[in-house]
């Protein structure tokens, strides 16, 4: 762990134990997060992005369980530390915002109650100060009439307002790391731009580290510093954003980049990767991508590729580079 690394994830595996067998939602994820950077987790739907970030704070509910791995933060292994220690970090040092702000707020409590609750649990006792800070944060998120919003119930706000209130809540205890799980999928384009702008500013102004989950490479290009590509619950490529886009290594990443609408020819047509996403209950042997890979070799069918360092800022898990 170098000085600039703030969070390090090693060999994380989270399975859901169901009657039909173990669903290997996350099956070997490694990455590290540097201070003040924005790391994007990219991959198609169902590849295990949400389960990965939930696992970081041990938020996966039964029948899911973290079966192996470590998450190092500040010399604490979040996977194995005590509940109490973890609770101090959840919402305190590491905060989280979710895709669907609509359902992420408790419908029977006011926005203010819910924000205040988080500050109180992390040690702020003065109720007036809590309220002042909360309203200040709402204002910072460009929410009109923050006083009114403070006393509103979630259903009284629009989706975009709720998402911004959610960000305000996550910032209420000045976290060092903010994890955002697709915070822009459920809102319209203008709100999306606003939210990205807010997150970008936060990162710059507060020096906060950001883990940003998305399947939208446009967003990655927009605010990401580095990107981690996930396929079938495994890390398959990690590089700086410019390298991922301009010089992708893994055939899957290449496919993803090819899927981007080509702005130069102005065509709306999307290329797509043939085949379907792997079934997490019955992952293929060897490299999870081999059934869809055009450059598949014999070894790919049997051996899980190890991480190969291509350059200082670029690693790939693929036998083509082995």
């Amino acid at each position: 762990m170098t000085d600039s690394t703030i969070l390090e994830v090693q060999d994380l595996k989270t399975y859901f134990f169901t009657r039909r067998g173990a669903v290997k939602a996350v099956d070997g994820i490694d990455f590290s997060l540097k201070k003040g950077e924005c790391l994007c987790l990219v991959g198609e739907s169902g590849c295990g992005k949400s389960v990965t970030v939930l696992s970081l704070l041990r938020l996966v509910a039964a029948p899911g369980r973290i079966v192996s791995g470590q998450v190092h933060y500040n010399n604490v292994d979040l996977v194995h530390c005590s509940e109490e220690k973890l609770r101090g970090i959840r919402g305190g040092d590491i905060a989280m915002i979710f895709q669907d702000a609509q359902s992420a707020f408790n419908p029977v409590l006011t926005i203010g109650d819910q924000i205040a609750e988080q500050m109180t649990i992390h040690g702020s006792i003065d109720r007036q100060a809590v309220k002042n800070k909360g309203i200040e944060l709402l204002k910072e998120m460009n929410i009109p009439e923050p006083d009114r919003v403070w006393d509103s119930f979630p259903h009284q706000l629009s989706g975009g307002m709720k998402q911004r209130a959610m960000i305000a809540m996550s910032l209420s205890c000045d976290p060092k790391i903010l994890i955002a799980d697709e915070p822009t999928t459920a809102v319209d384009v203008t709100i999306k731009a606003q939210i990205l702008d807010i997150l970008h500013t936060l990162k710059e102004k507060r020096g906060m580290s950001l883990i940003f989950v998305t399947h939208d490479l446009g967003i990655v290009a927009d605010i990401g510093d580095r990107a981690q590509v996930i396929y079938g619950g495994k890390s398959i490529e990690m590089a700086s954003v410019s390298e991922i886009i301009n010089n992708p290594g893994h055939p899957y990443t290449k496919g993803l980049i090819a899927c981007l609408p080509d702005s130069s020819t102005d065509s709306e047509r999307l290329a797509s990767i043939p085949g379907t996403a792997p079934n997490p209950i019955d992952l293929p042997e060897g490299c999870p991508f081999h059934p869809r890979c055009a450059q598949v070799m014999d070894i790919c069918r049997h051996v899980v590729p190890k991480q190969t360092i291509i350059s200082e800022t670029h690693t790939v898990n693929c036998h083509l580079f082995g």
Partner: peptide, 12 residues
């Protein structure tokens, strides 16, 4: 989802 949010806030 709000239960996960509540846990993510650090509530016991």
């Amino acid at each position: 989802a709000f239960v996960t949010t509540a846990r993510a806030k650090g509530l016991p």
